[in-house]
């Protein structure tokens, strides 16, 4: 009997073989205007996307709006998804992250943002990640990979991805030159790629 482990829409057959990109298959059907496939994709990925958006934006009602924008964009531009260039899951989550960050930038003057600014966020960002990832296998993998980074690299990547901060904001927050922050991000991301075995 073929036992499958489902990780975010990617079926990993336990008896080996290449993982099946279920989200990607749904996306191809969505590109053809298949509304049932769209509903399936939403059910599969919306909790993760919403968690990510909430993480970046904090504000719940704005996060709901952004989630809606994300899936509208998925519906409208699914034809741009190229299965040979990556998994459907990454494609959707990349859109979710970009839209969340766009919203943070456009709402930069808001009080939310002011509350979130400040050094305490750095600690919270990583500690938060560390406790949350206990919940899932794949999350644990990310946490372990993050743990292999140097503290400054992890700080830069965490603030950028989970905090939605720009490179210049991070430079100001941690008191390092902008060029240094850029280098930390590049080196940190390369390291993560190696640790998590990302192949493209």
């Amino acid at each position: 009997m073929l036992v499958c482990v489902v990780i975010d829409g990617v079926y990993v057959p336990e008896e080996g073989g290449a993982p099946i990109d279920h989200a990607g298959e749904l996306l191809l059907r969505v590109a053809d205007g298949d509304q049932t496939a769209f509903a399936g994709l939403y059910d599969m990925l919306s909790p993760r996307a919403f968690g990510l958006i909430l993480r970046v934006l904090v504000d719940r009602s704005q996060s709901e709006e952004v989630l809606q924008e994300v899936f509208l964009e998925v519906w409208q531009s699914a034809a741009r998804f190229a299965p040979n260039k990556g998994q459907g899951r990454s494609w959707v989550l990349t859109i979710a992250h970009r839209r969340a960050v766009d919203r943070v930038r456009s709402a930069q003057a808001s009080t939310d943002r002011d509350v979130r600014a400040g050094l305490r966020d750095i600690g919270v960002a990583y500690d938060g990640v560390a406790e949350e990832v206990e919940l899932r296998i794949e999350g644990k993998r990310v946490s372990e990979a993050l743990a292999t980074l140097s503290d400054p690299q992890r700080e830069a990547i965490t603030l950028a991805y989970y905090g939605g901060y720009s490179q210049s904001e991070i430079a100001a927050l941690v008191g390092a030159p902008l060029g240094t922050i850029k280098t930390r991000m590049r080196d940190g991301l390369s390291r993560l790629r190696g640790e998590m075995g990302v192949t493209t």
């Binding site: 993760r48 968690g51 993480r55 998994q87 990349t94 949350e132 989970y162 991301l189 790629r193 998590m196």
Partner: peptide, 14 residues
Amino acid sequence: AATAALLADAVVDV
């Protein structure tokens, strides 16, 4: 992009 998208795994589903 593929590496960054994996970072989403460390977030709690809501």
